[in-house]
Design a protein around this nucleic acid. Structure first.
Length: 603
RNA sequence: GCGCCCGUAGCUCAGCUGGAUAGAGCAUCGGCCUUCUAAGCCGAGGGUCGUGGGUUCGAGUCCCGCCGGGCGCGCCA
């Protein structure tokens, strides 16, 4: 529907240009939007204001010229008025609204989506990427749901999407896991053990040790560390990954690829990227990294940097901050060059991550989206710089940083600490609140907003739980269609709906819903573009609110009424709405229930 | 100290990349079930969009300064 208005505006502009009334090269982007105020018509357009400077005419004059010369061969427009500072307020013919029903029903589950893989763009979304040293906990939840929804959204927008999980199965942390597993393993054979600082005290490690014992018996009790450690790491990461995958499945989250960091070391990719950088002349050997602004490091004495200063022995640095382009400018955003090889020649985490991102682009992705928690924000400019230094267009790499979430229960913050073993697992949260509720709460917010996740409100299963009335909108559609069958007036179906049926959709509430329904493709496209799933959620919320109001207001003139033609028209609207919600829910990853039972009244 | 993010109704948050009278949910108060599920609807109250400047036809939205909160600033991953 919006497109029809656009076509008319574009055609009119070109007609005015052809007549020599105005001159322009290209039509700048302008908005065709739903006005909040019904008096402002069905659709409002700001093109006259946007273009007024370019064509050297006052907005109001340009608006008048457009109105006077409107190109509308199919009589889509009933009226158009100039209002305010130069808005064009369009009213469209009822039939344009009614046609939305047919369009939705014809599109079916594809409504709102572009054809699969139709954009020709290969996109990767990397998300969760929780360390395989423990289960997925509540701190991962937001990024997990966000990443999954972004992947669904990009898929709906017609891109070829790969969902990936990067496994940090290399380095000190998994080594610590291996040592903890081995200690717990020895403990199972009666040995008294004490965990060292930094080792993982939580129970799941004991479970892993039990699994290990069941598999290998006492094999690794008296072997040298060089033998038991790799085996302990293997079983530890494997079992943790198994648990991680089980939790994600519970959350309706899936990945296509689990990519191992260790494999990058094994294949030599980590070594080779250092050579690539050296060949490009963007590295140097030094005792410490150069800083962009030449200022001294000013940090708190108890900062980690100061704390670990004695371990910083120099090595090979990558010019993530101080690299200069041909013009002598330093366009990279990092504030300090980063080490990629320690003094002893071993690579650091960043080196592997750079190799990983290079590998992504080598695999042919046009866009890589990384979903990180805000606590990894410092990592972003290094990877960006590193890719820039490989000659990769920075636009091909996007970071979605989700802010941290404060979990509260009984008004108090729930502290989570892997070190202390006080984990709050995502699996437990889902058991307690339900996958859809969790997902909904996390997706309701923009990624930049910090927020408090109130466990009491969510687990109470009461009406302050937003997802229920939301899903009830879909269930109500389903229920009405079912009721129509029971009453002997079943919906004739998408193929049999006639213009005569749809012509009975003339109520302002019906037209409003149809207007909004017609917007789903736009909402999806724009949300995908911005990597912001919450727009789809708020779209649903508005539509559902309209529907509940419509339903209640016309209880005395019900959808299933005495007039069979009108009934069919309204059932078609309900079917189209149900289809719209189903499509939108799928993009969000929320279930669209056919039926919901009202809870028993309390008190 | 430096960098990034946030500050909008009592609470939790939207606000479609600068548009018309700033919205939703929850909470509070008052109404609506012999009808297609009341997990719903209608109505009311509730705002100096943290603050002070600037940019322009027009600012919650863009720029600068301040105030308040969060996160980060490791040769851990």
């Amino acid at each position: 529907m919006r497109q029809k208005v656009r076509q008319i505006v574009d055609a009119t502009l070109h007609a005015l240009k052809a007549r020599g009334d105005i001159a322009f090269d290209i039509i700048p982007p302008y908005a065709v939007e739903l006005p909040k105020n019904l008096e402002h018509g069905d659709w409002a357009c700001n093109v006259a204001m946007v273009m007024s400077k370019a064509v050297g005419r006052k907005p109001t004059e340009l608006a008048d010229a457009l109105i006077a010369n409107l190109v509308d061969p199919h009589s889509v427009v009933v009226s158009v008025e100039r209002a305010g500072p130069g808005f064009l307020n369009f009213r469209l013919a009822d039939v344009v609204f009614q046609r939305v029903v047919s369009e939705v029903l014809a599109a079916g589950v594809q409504f709102g989506r572009r054809p699969p893989r139709s954009t020709g763009r290969k996109v990767m979304v990397e998300f969760v990427s929780a360390n395989p040293t423990g289960p997925v906990h509540i701190g991962h939840a937001r990024g997990a749901f966000m990443g999954d929804a972004i992947a669904r959204l990009l898929d709906a927008a017609g891109h070829d999407v790969t969902r990936e999980f990067y496994i940090n199965d290399y380095g000190k942390q998994v080594e610590t896991l291996g040592r903890t597993v081995h200690k717990r393993y020895r403990e199972l054979f009666g040995e008294a053990v004490t965990l060292a600082e930094g080792e993982y005290p939580a129970e799941y490690v004991i479970d892993i040790a039990k699994t290990w014992r069941a598999e290998v018996g006492d094999t690794y009790l008296r072997r040298p560390e060089a033998e038991w450690l790799p085996a302990a790491i293997e079983v530890g990461t494997r079992e943790n990954l198994k648990a991680i995958k089980a939790t994600l499945a519970k959350a309706n989250i899936s990945h296509d690829v689990f990519f191992s960091e260790a494999s990058l070391h094994a294949s030599g990719a980590v070594r080779s990227i250092v050579d690539v950088y050296k060949a490009r002349g963007v590295t140097y050997e030094a005792a410490e990294g150069r800083r962009k602004d030449n200022k001294e490091k000013v940090r708190d004495a108890d900062s980690k940097a100061a704390q670990y200063a004695d371990r910083q022995l120099g090595g090979t640095f990558l010019m993530t901050a101080t690299w200069q382009d041909e013009k002598g400018k330093t366009p990279l955003k990092d504030e300090e060059d980063r080490i990629i090889l320690r003094a002893d020649g071993t690579p650091v985490y960043l080196t592997a991550d750079l190799a990983y991102h290079k590998a992504k682009f080598d695999r042919g992705f046009d866009l890589c989206v990384d979903v990180f928690g805000a606590d990894h924000a410092g990592h972003v400019p290094r990877i960006q710089s590193g890719m820039h230094l490989l000659g990769i267009d920075p636009k091909m790499l996007e970071f979605v940083l989700v802010q941290l979430v404060r979990i509260t229960r009984g008004g108090e913050e729930v502290k989570v600490s892997k070190r202390k073993g006080t984990l709050f697992e995502l699996a437990d949260l889902i058991d307690e609140a339900g996958a859809d509720v969790c997902r909904f709460i996390f997706l309701m917010k923009t990624r930049d907003a910090q927020f408090d996740f109130d466990l009491d409100a969510v687990t109470r299963q009461s009406k302050d739980n937003p997802v229920f009335s939301f899903q009830y909108g879909h269930a109500r559609c389903a229920s009405i269609l079912k009721k129509a069958v029971e009453k002997g007036m079943p919906f004739v179906g998408a193929a049999a709906v006639t213009d005569a049926h749809l012509a009975r959709l003339v109520l302002p509430e019906e037209k409003m819903m149809l207007k909004k329904i017609s917007q789903l493709p736009d909402v999806v496209a724009s949300a995908a573009d911005r990597l912001e799933p919450h727009h789809v959620l708020y779209f649903c919320q508005e539509l559902i609110g309209d529907f509940h109001a419509y339903y209640t207001q016309y209880r005395t003139d019900p959808i299933i009424g005495d007039d069979p033609v009108k009934t069919q028209g309204r059932l078609a609207l309900v079917a189209a709405l149900k289809q719209t919600l189903q499509c939108a829910f799928r993009i969000l990853g929320i279930e669209a229930p056919e039926h919901m039972e009202a809870p028993a009244d309390e008190g």
